[in-house]
Computed example of a mutant assay.
Amino acid sequence: MHLTLIGIGTGNPEHLTLQAIRAMNAQDLILIPRKGAGKADLAELRQAICDEVLSNPEAQVVEFDLPVRDATISNYRQRVDQWHDQIALAWQGAMTGQKADNVALLVWGDPSLYDSTLRIASRLDPLPQVEVIPGITSLQALTAAHAIPVNEIGAPFTVTTGRQLRDNGWPDGIDTIAVMLDGECAFQTLPPEGIHIWWGGYVGMKEQIICEGPLVEVGAQIIQMRAEARENHGWIMDIYLLRKNS
C-alpha cells in the first residue's frame, strides 16, 4: 500500500498546494477521522476540502472514529504510545474491505511539526510506502495573520508545547518561543513583565481571532477570548508567539 500524508494547512481550502490537490485526486481512498460530537467541525472541514477539490470520481472518502486518549494512564509517554497504537488499529479497520492501493490522510498543518501521523503510520502492519506532501503550518498562519517575522535578525527561536512551557519554563538562551498544543494557557506560569505575545485562534480560517500586546496587559483578555471561542465552537486550535523585550 502507498500511504500519502497530505498537509492541508489550517482548514482553509486556499492553503492547499497544487501538489496537495494532485495528490488527493490520485488516491483510491481518503480517510477522515471523527473526534466526537464536540469536534465534529474538524471532520466536516476535511470533508468540505474534499468536496471542493476532488475531481476524481473513483476516490472514496471514508470516515472513522478516532480513539480517545486514556486519561487514567499517569505516564504521559505511555499514554500517548497506547493512543497511537489504537489509532493505527483504527486506520487499519477503516481500510479493511476497501479496494485501495493508494490511501491518504489529510493532516492539519504539516506532518512534520508537532503531528504524530508519521509515528502512527510506522505502526501499521504491513508497513506502507509513505509519501509526505508538506503543508502550511499554524506557525506560518499565525505570523502571517499578525504580519510579523517569527525571529529577530539573526536570532534563533524555539517551537515548544504548552506542557513543556508549564513544566520547564522559558528555554535558556532564547528570546522568542512559539507555543503549540496548549490547552491551558501556559503563559500564565511566566512572570509577564517584559514579554510580548502574539496569539491566534483558528488562524487562517474564516473563524480566525487574534490578539497581541504586552503579556501583562492582554494575557487575561486572551484567556477570556479563548474560553468564549471554545464554548461557541466546541473546540479550538490556537497558537502563540512570545518574545522577550530587548
Score class of each variant (00 low, 15 high):
N102T: 12
I153Q: 12
A186K: 03
I153C: 09
P57K: 12
G93D: 10
M95Q: 14
D175F: 05
I6N: 06
E52M: 13
Q27P: 00
P111L: 02
G194V: 06
D41T: 05
E131W: 00
P13G: 13
G36Y: 06
L142W: 03
Q188Y: 04
T17D: 03
I209W: 03
G213I: 07
S55V: 14
K244I: 03
D125I: 01
T96C: 11
T117F: 05
R46S: 10
T72F: 00
Q221S: 11
A88E: 09
T143H: 03
V150R: 12
A121C: 01
K244F: 00
L45I: 15
G169H: 09
L31Q: 09
Q86Y: 01
M205A: 11
L124S: 04
E44H: 07
N232V: 05
W199E: 06
W235P: 01
E207R: 15
R163F: 02
T158M: 14
L215P: 05
G93L: 08
A186S: 14
L16D: 02
S112E: 13
L190F: 00
A71M: 08
A220L: 14
N151L: 00
G9C: 10
R119H: 11
L215C: 08
Y114R: 05
A178N: 00
E44G: 10
M225K: 14
P192A: 08
N75E: 14
P33L: 02
G162H: 05
N75Y: 06
N232D: 04
Q82L: 13
E212T: 13
Q208H: 09
Q19D: 08
D115W: 05
E44T: 04
H146G: 07
L29I: 00
G162S: 04
D167Q: 15
Q60G: 09
A59C: 15
D238W: 01
T137N: 06
I49L: 14
R69N: 08
L118K: 14
L5F: 10
P156D: 10
L42Y: 11
L124K: 13
A94F: 05
D238K: 04
P156V: 10
I174F: 02
D172P: 05
D125K: 12
G7V: 07
D41I: 02
H146V: 09
Q47L: 14
F64N: 08
V103C: 05
R79H: 06
M1W: 11
N12Y: 04
G38I: 02
D65I: 07
V80T: 13
T158Y: 11
